[in-house]
Amino acid sequence: MPQDKPLNTSRVKLTQKQYQQLVSERQPKVPVLKRALRAFVSGGLICTFGQFLLETYMDVFGMTRDLASSATTATIILIGGLLTGLGYFDKIAAFAGAGVAVPVTGFANSMVSSAMEYKREGLIYGIGSHLFGLAGSVIVYGVVTAFVVGLIVSLVS
């Protein structure tokens, strides 16, 4: 534990911890329940739409389940990327939050927004090195988690 220090001003006679306590008591609270509800509904809608796409690809285009599943993911990534590029995604996300961040739409948004942001810095130092700036964590810990889970499964079975 870092030790507690008084604020370095004689005008506020509180320690840093006491002051932080005061701030967190006064701070307007994040409306967690409201945001969770919105995320549940909007995330659910996206997944329902994904399911609709999956069935359509299988029934109408005669794809196998594996192929249709990849096609569905690709379609949703495309929509997420398009909405980002057209400038709507951040406004939707301000409302839906995790509802659009958790599905693959969030992954698409993080990459396209980075690409747009760093375009001015060129293909190598800009887009190339920043494309996975936000998505990188998802990939790294996705791979690590898959490895650990895979290891456990192979040991158990």
Partner: peptide
């Protein structure tokens, strides 16, 4: 925003403060 936080078009919710 880009320098201190996230890309402009990155979608996220900001705390009310």
């Amino acid at each position: 925003e880009r320098q201190f936080r996230y890309p402009v078009e990155y979608g996220m919710q900001r705390p009310p403060y």
